[in-house]
Amino acid sequence: MDSKEIIARRIALELKDGNVVNLGIGLPTMVSNYLPKGVNILLQSENGFVGLAPVKDVDPDLVNAGGQPVGLVPGAAMFDSCTSFMLIRGGHVDATVLGGLQVDSKGNLANWMVPGKMVPGMGGAMDLVSGAKKVIIGMEHTAKDGTPKILVNCDLPLTGKGVVNMIVTELGVIRVIPEGLGLILEETAPGVTPEEVIAKTQAKLTISPNLTTMKL
């Protein structure tokens, strides 16, 4: 199982039957492949609908927020961009799963730009993190060169302040304590020790007294 699959499988277990969920582009999209039997979620797409499904017949008028052709489930609904963000900002989306460049000890998230290098724009990410009831960040634990991505303080421009609830990486599951009170390591991936996770994390991690092996 590669890192991305571990992350996607674990996040899938966080979603409850009937949840309205917005999945970011890339790794987060994989989450819907691993939902447990009996858990049906309704996917929201910020370009204006709920009820996103895998593509069957390509319809040029129907794409996801990444511009890729998708399908619709029975019972889906289409709407305009204002309504889409009424759902998002208004707390009608139960969870959003997004990637991250950096997350810090206060639950701050940076995932929309690297000054001077990559400035794609925030799209709907800032609204999603401010409005979704639960913000789950799925990302590889460190950058490709091994640099920690879970930091004391983010140094990249923020997407949201104190918005992250949970971080899932290929090494473990970390919960963010509200009010900037720090990070708790709750699960480690099979074969990974808490010491290894701590060594690869710049922010201080408190090890949960109920630390378990990551369910996959």
């Binding site: 961009s81 889409s84 963000f85 998002i88 400035v119 799209g123 709907g124 800032m126």
Partner: peptide, 20 residues
């Protein structure tokens, strides 16, 4: 992005929900 960095195009990036 190229025109923005070259100073040929001014870009205001706005959160999507705020823009709408």
């Amino acid at each position: 992005g190229r025109q923005m960095i070259a100073g040929e195009l001014s870009v205001d990036l706005i959160p999507q929900g705020t823009l709408a």
